[in-house]
Computed example of a mutant assay.
Amino acid sequence: MNKNFPNKVVNFLKKEGFYVILFVCLCIVAVVAAVTVKDSKHSNTSSVQQSNVAQNNNLSKKTAKSQEKSSMGYDNALQVKKSANSQSQSKSSKSNSQSVSKTVRTSFEKPVNGTLARGYSGDPVYWDSTASYRPNLGYDLKCDLGTPVMAAMNGKVEEVNTSTQDGVEVIIDHQNGLKTVYSNLDPKVKVSKGQTVTAGTVIGSVGKTTLRSAYEKYGDHLHFAVLNGNNFVDPGKYIKY
């Protein structure tokens, strides 16, 4: 090793020492500056992230409150709508019930002044007139020839038939599911098809036009029947003799 090397180093430091120290200081300053800038960026990034998180939290809270209010409003509106529908249905039901009670009667006025000679029977019964057994799907009401026959309820004349086995007959539609049939009338009826009548309106008089019961022991009579839909029913459900 060169014995003069240490002397050379010492001489170099004496001559260039200032610049070496300055270079080292600059390096230190640069390193410190770089670290400071990095920490500042990290701090700023953290602050921005924290700010974003806070904003997101506030936005979530506002959204949740808005949704809650909207849900409450929707629920309230739904409850109001249900309540309105329920009230409407209740009113409609009451209206329908009142309408039915006004249009459907459970009793008739007597179509003729007389007495019950033969009642309703769905089973065959014996008839002197034909010497046979058959049902009697109505009432045979004994009365004098020419006795006035009246409509049992308000309605509209559906048919005036002049040639049936039960004689001349008038059918009245009461427009509530019920119809009444008046048979064995005198040919000179007082009403016509399509005519509106009220209970008690005279529609004709008792005659001798029946073929089915012309020779029954009880003599002159009105055959009175009731239709519910298309089926004959017992007149006793609606009238008493």
Rank of each mutant, 00 (worst) to 15 (best):
residue 104 V to T: 07
residue 79 Q to P: 03
residue 55 Q to L: 13
residue 99 S to L: 08
residue 98 Q to K: 10
residue 125 V to Q: 14
residue 53 V to M: 03
residue 92 S to A: 12
residue 122 G to T: 13
residue 114 G to N: 01
residue 135 P to H: 12
residue 144 D to N: 14
residue 52 N to S: 02
residue 127 W to D: 04
residue 73 G to E: 09
residue 147 T to Y: 04
residue 73 G to Y: 14
residue 71 S to F: 06
residue 118 R to A: 10
residue 130 T to Q: 05
residue 136 N to R: 15
residue 121 S to C: 06
residue 160 V to K: 03
residue 133 Y to G: 15
residue 93 S to G: 00
residue 132 S to R: 09
residue 62 K to T: 15
residue 127 W to M: 04
residue 82 K to P: 00
residue 46 S to D: 13
residue 90 S to L: 08
residue 125 V to S: 01
residue 72 M to R: 10
residue 102 K to W: 01
residue 88 S to A: 12
residue 116 L to S: 07
residue 147 T to L: 04
residue 49 Q to N: 14
residue 116 L to P: 10
residue 57 N to M: 12
residue 123 D to V: 04
residue 46 S to F: 14
residue 98 Q to I: 02
residue 154 N to V: 08
residue 143 C to W: 09
residue 131 A to F: 02
residue 105 R to G: 02
residue 63 T to D: 08
residue 66 S to V: 02
residue 71 S to P: 07
residue 96 N to I: 03
residue 94 K to A: 12
residue 99 S to K: 02
residue 150 M to F: 11
residue 69 K to Y: 00
residue 133 Y to C: 12
residue 155 G to W: 04
residue 121 S to A: 00
residue 90 S to E: 11
residue 71 S to A: 02
residue 54 A to D: 07
residue 77 A to I: 02
residue 53 V to P: 00
residue 69 K to C: 08
residue 72 M to F: 08
residue 72 M to V: 09
residue 103 T to S: 11
residue 106 T to Q: 06
residue 116 L to T: 08
residue 126 Y to D: 03
residue 86 S to F: 09
residue 127 W to V: 01
residue 75 D to P: 01
residue 78 L to K: 12
residue 77 A to T: 03
residue 101 S to A: 08
